[in-house]
Computed example of a mutant assay.
Amino acid sequence: MGHTQKYFFKVFFICLCLTGAAACEDKEEAGPAQVSYKGTNQAEQLLEDMEEVTSAVSVKEGKQIFAAVTVHQFDRLQLENIRKKGHSLLKEQWPEETVHFSTDYKSWLELNKYKEDRRNKSMSEKERKKRLTQIEEFMKG
């Protein structure tokens, strides 16, 4: 096998991998799941537009919105103000919903894991309620 052929196969393999990764990204947006994630994507974008926020995750279940953010290290001194501001933004956007909002990293982590699990595997109604109750407890404490 010549040098040119090896180079061609490497380039072909990389292109193939990139195409597969792009196809996986599009998969999330397509189909009926798009409807159920519309509010959460909008909530995450709204929260990530806050200058103090580095990352946001949210889940909408029924008439409840669960959202958590991570903030820049320097802004950790003003967590109470960030919590009030984030909660107000969500409540203004969805006045009919019950909003649960936290700046706690543990809440962010558990909510992110819940969202991934909900997307990747089917959970029973009982399991979903149990996990959301646990997440709500993290948000309170």
Rank of each mutant, 00 (worst) to 15 (best):
I14W: 00
T98F: 00
Q73L: 11
H87Y: 06
L16P: 01
W108K: 02
K113W: 01
K113E: 11
K27W: 10
K106N: 08
L77I: 11
E125L: 13
K10Q: 13
F12Y: 07
D26W: 07
R83I: 01
C24N: 12
K60P: 01
D75Y: 08
R119K: 15
V59G: 00
V57L: 00
E137G: 12
V71I: 15
E97L: 06
I65F: 03
Q78T: 02
L90K: 04
A33I: 02
I14F: 01
A67L: 07
F74G: 14
L109Q: 13
M139Y: 02
V35H: 10
K63I: 00
G86V: 02
H72M: 11
M1K: 05
I14Y: 03
Y7R: 15
M123D: 07
V53A: 05
C24W: 09
Y105H: 11
Q73V: 11
K38C: 06
L79R: 10
P95F: 01
V71A: 12
F8Y: 15
E80P: 05
F8P: 08
S88T: 10
K140W: 05
E110H: 08
T70W: 00
N41C: 02
G2K: 09
G39Y: 01
D26Y: 08
E29S: 11
F74N: 15
R128V: 14
E92C: 01
V11K: 10
R128D: 10
Q42Y: 07
W94R: 08
K126L: 13
V35R: 11
L89M: 13
L77P: 09
E116S: 15
V57E: 10
T40N: 10
E52W: 04
G62W: 04
T54W: 00
C24K: 13
L16F: 07
N112L: 01
F9L: 14
L111G: 03
E52M: 09
K126V: 13
Q73Y: 09
L79A: 08
M139F: 00
G20R: 10
Q42L: 14
T19N: 04
C15K: 03
C24V: 15
S88Y: 05
Y114R: 03
G39I: 04
R83M: 03
T40W: 00
T70P: 06
Y114T: 02
R119S: 14
S88L: 06
D104F: 04
H72I: 10
E61P: 04
L47R: 08
S107K: 01
Q73K: 12
R83S: 09
C15R: 00
V69M: 02
E96Y: 09
S36W: 10
R131A: 11
L77K: 10
M139T: 07
N120W: 04
Q78L: 05
E48F: 02
E44Y: 02
K115W: 04
V57H: 06
C15V: 02
H100Y: 13
C15F: 05
Q78V: 01
G20S: 04
E92P: 04
Q45I: 03
A22V: 06
D104H: 11
E136Q: 15
S55I: 02
Q134E: 15
P95K: 06
V99M: 01
S124F: 11
F8R: 15
F9A: 11
Y7W: 07
D49L: 07
